[in-house]
Nucleic acid binder design. Structure first.
Lengths: 156, 156
DNA sequence: TCTAATAGACAATCAGGTTGACGATCTCAC
DNA sequence: GTGAGATCGTCAACCTGATTGTCTATTAGA
């Protein structure tokens, strides 16, 4: 039997660890030349396939309306993280592609997150860390790849 | 050395596990007679001290403006989860107290979350689960008791 | 008793999302 | 071919949940 008081603590542990991880990621991204990149941008960047993606497809992947995704993509374009081009095969559509800067941001994110994970693994022990990963995988189970939170937490 | 690809997965594991846990909590709370209780309400309820709290104090605890907290408390009053009374010692202030229904919701939350944690611990093994807890505690470190997310994820 | 600070309500505003409607374009059955 | 219907991305209107600024009532303290 685990301590029943853990019940109330556990969600806070999860969200707190998430928050701290993402805060550290963006602090280091900012220091590495990406001060304007917000978490929501990083999520959108990850929804872009290597061959380029349509806005509608990205919206569906992330779980927001295409209008919302269009706005985010517009901002990413402004910031130089993506390029847009009309799809030669379908002139209604745009193909959104990562720019070199976008690729840089994404690969740096990977490096930073890997380093952060490694740092935490060093502190608690690698096998402990991997145990935590497998526990989280079990809890998360077959959830969606991207979580959509709009209006989820609140709602009057 | 842990697999560098874990870096990108880890935040999604955390947020996915959190989301799943809270979703299950509120599904069971709804089935137990609390269908209108949202996560944001549960957070506010937890910010009420046993002897009663002022709105301003709750706002500070949770990390939102007092106006926002006043609205949430108003809703909780509507729903019958709290009672408000003028503070006899300071007639500007209100004392917000949990109603019996509020106490029921909070104690049920505890029971449900403990059961969910126990269920996951049963699946992965109690010692594995406790290892995960200590890893999360290490990552979360000395973060605030309540995480405040408004405007954190997005921001143009 | 006068002044500064505080509790909470009201109003205006903002941000980030939503839905609905639209023009342009594509697909497909005929 | 061509006409009907679906789909892509934009524009506009709106909703929600937060924010800041302002206000009154009240309290605390010199």
């Amino acid at each position: 039997m685990i301590d029943p008081r853990l019940g109330h603590e556990f969600p806070f542990l999860l969200v707190g660890a998430f928050r701290r991880l993402i805060d550290e990621l963006h602090r280091e991204l900012a220091a590495a030349g990406h001060p304007d990149l917000r978490p929501v941008h990083a999520v959108a960047l990850q929804a872009i396939e290597v061959s380029g993606s349509r806005i509608t497809a990205m919206a569906q992947t992330v779980g927001v309306s295409k209008q919302a995704m269009a706005k985010t993509v517009g901002r990413l374009d402004e910031l130089g993280y993506v390029n847009r081009a009309v799809d030669s095969a379908d002139r209604r559509a745009q193909i959104v592609r990562l720019s070199p800067r976008g690729r840089d941001a994404l690969s740096r994110s990977g490096v930073i997150l890997a380093a952060l994970s490694q740092r935490h693994a060093d502190v608690v022990g690698e096998d402990q860390f991997m145990t935590a990963v497998s526990v989280l995988r079990a809890i998360r189970a077959d959830g969606p790849a991207f979580e959509h939170f709009e209006g989820w937490f609140g709602g009057r």
